[in-house]
Design a binder for these strands. Sequence first.
DNA 1: ATTAGCAGTCAAAGAAATAGATTGCTAAAA
DNA 2: TTTTAGCAATCTATTTCTTTGACTGCTAAT
Lengths: 342, 342
Amino acid sequence: MPENLDNRKRKILQAIVEEYIETSEPVSSGSLVQNEELNCSSATIRNEMAELEQIGFLEKPHTSAGRVPSQKGYRYYVDELLREDNLSRKEIEMIREMMETKVNRLEDLTKIATTTLSEITHYTTIAIEPNVSNHTIIDIKFILLGTRVLMAVILTDSGIIRESIIKFDEDLTQEQIDDLTYIFNNKLVGKPLEKIDGPIEEYIVAEMKTGIKIIEKIIEEINKLLEDSKTYIKGANKVIDMPEFKKQDMAKDFLNVIDAKDIIADVINTGMAKDINVYIGSESEREELKNFSIVTFNHLLDGKDIGTIGIIGPTRMDYSKVISVMKYISKKLNDDYKKGKF
Amino acid sequence: MPENLDNRKRKILQAIVEEYIETSEPVSSGSLVQNEELNCSSATIRNEMAELEQIGFLEKPHTSAGRVPSQKGYRYYVDELLREDNLSRKEIEMIREMMETKVNRLEDLTKIATTTLSEITHYTTIAIEPNVSNHTIIDIKFILLGTRVLMAVILTDSGIIRESIIKFDEDLTQEQIDDLTYIFNNKLVGKPLEKIDGPIEEYIVAEMKTGIKIIEKIIEEINKLLEDSKTYIKGANKVIDMPEFKKQDMAKDFLNVIDAKDIIADVINTGMAKDINVYIGSESEREELKNFSIVTFNHLLDGKDIGTIGIIGPTRMDYSKVISVMKYISKKLNDDYKKGKF
DNA sequence: ATTAGCAGTCAAAGAAATAGATTGCTAAAA
DNA sequence: TTTTAGCAATCTATTTCTTTGACTGCTAAT
């Protein structure tokens, strides 16, 4: 139910959210009178604020304090009041510079984007490799590294490369490797990299020259590759300067969340395929995250998911700035891609 | 100059360090009287403590507080007074269990050891891949992943595998790859992986079929591989429960150190090749680390450095326990290695 | 519908008082 | 000479009380 606020209430809510984001202090009616767009006295504002609190957009830490946006207030702000925060020329310059580095791997590009995002926004940034299971296999290579050590390299259409090293208890011959390469490529190229469990038998039957054990082990390892998606964190130290982390509990919760990156990965992976997702406080439905907000963007190239980058910070987050920077970086990645930068 | 303390002073210093490590409260003369080994009154202990302070082994936070070990005090303790802390059966069981996982890569083994160490000691653990430059090359493979994308895989005698993906502006043929493989193997196998810059020309001259540019690029990428050693951190959240991190500054310093892992990598890499190194406070000669201690061990297999694992925590660290656990894990890794586990 | 004005509320900051821990010193005892 | 008992002095941590100042909410006038 998208509540309808009259114009003045919208302006007041917006002003409160923005001032609070900037100062981290509860906002008083008095300080809002200064706002040019609001041509009324503090008493009027107080009345409006009381109503906004009534319907759940604002909260009061205590009777004689100013107001603070509630989670619902932030949500309304993000959905309805957010204005594009234009990046300064300096910031754009900085982003350009940082992202200029040449890379050979998509993975490295993600790292760079993560670092850039953290530097510019001053929040902690997390990158998560995509779930590759719906990516299409372009090629599979097997390389014998020792008599009993095999390396499997899988290429997908999205440019993501995964490799795995597999050890066996028996010697492998080059002939076997050639067989494997032939069969796996034959059966899997052009298909999505879904878990290969159902039709395993089929492959095995089709191919008895190289023992069942070997094939089973290879499939097992390939499946493992699909499961673990790497995560990178940058700027975990950024939070320390934020006033909310003066509270021991917040700091503790934050470090715990960072250490168990899966928590965030979970949230990110359950997200919709919108380009930008915003989870405010308990919206992420994880107890540990109820005091934090997460903003993510799915990095799509040619419609393929090639990874998600997320920012985590207090609910009092500069959503406007974060979203603007994300959009810019996202666009830049796409442009670079089209120019064939990688 | 290894100062000589009489027996009673040694006992007192030891008792103070151990009690302080346990409680994190300054130790008073009164609480030491309880110690059975010390058969004297609190007044006597006070006199001894005054002398220990005189010669720099103890410090006083303020006049009416107990004593705290100084950095020099910790150093003496570690060098002279440390007693082997026998691990409980439960801990040994836990280590065994955690390290049972089968791995294919040395890298994964390091990760597991890192996690185990952090779980058992309750400190933050950092693993750093070794500098492979003095490792001997066993094999070099080149795999064509696309017409312009090459993967180079380097195997060393220590079992460490490094791979790199290299992109070119022109198409590569399989024939060229075969050439490259032949030449690189011919020239490099059996040699240490030192930076390949001096005799580059030689290779190039020996081989004109595949353009100079390609070779240059490959060498460049291989050199990059040598430089960047990966680091893993586990248990960064462990510190939050330690009383010293109640102080904002400590927490800030810690997060900064963790974020710029290079700082620690630096310290670790400049260490001697002793099996276990202990850096107490400013001994690490980095301003950022003056309030922290680092204990590292070089993981050697067959005399080859295959990585370093370090623990970082406050100077009030349970050195005895940390060192005992490290020794145990180190031994276990070696045993497993001899049994051919990897 | 708006606003001026004022009483009421509460946290945060400061000041003062208190309690408690521990030392250092002195003089007596061993 | 070494050890110890005892006590004054020191300083932190805790508690309590007071003061200040920032807001709000309400009422009555505009």
